[in-house]
Amino acid sequence: MKIQDGFTIDAPAADVWALLSDPERVADLLPGAKMGDRIDDNTYSGGMFVKVGPLAVAYDGTVSFQLDESERSVQVRARGRGKRGMGTAEMTMTSQVIAHGDTRTEVTIDSDVVVTGILAQMGRGMIQVVSKKMLQEFVGNLTKALA
């Protein structure tokens, strides 16, 4: 499932890029995400906790970052295995920082979310809603962090 989002903010592109290219800070802004140990240059262990009312799923997995300094673009790829046999989740999120003059910056976010297992089967469209909401919160947190 592909989700496109983005925002424009009154901040210099360099500041925005400095934040978005720092894996640990990005992880802080993702709701429910927890960054673990660094596995290699680009990869960390990590966890994700999603709670929707009585329904709660915890994923354990890895997060990898691919930075493209020249394009000011970062691809975050998170892969997790749900605890208690709850299936898998994989998210690829590509963010690009585009300068509009010196003080205005646009960030585009393209995400692709693949959820398998019982949540995808029984979710009645829930994954779509939850993914969108998480992304919106992320954008909100990002905006706040840059303000």
């Binding site: 009585p54 329904l55 208690r84 046999g85 019982i118 029984m122």
Partner: peptide, 21 residues
């Protein structure tokens, strides 16, 4: 904790292990 009255929504969720209070 999780409150249960009739359990007709909660127990199916437990059986599917979608919830685990």
């Amino acid at each position: 904790p999780k409150v249960m009255s009739g359990g007709q929504s909660l127990l199916p969720m437990l059986k599917l292990r979608l919830a685990s209070p």
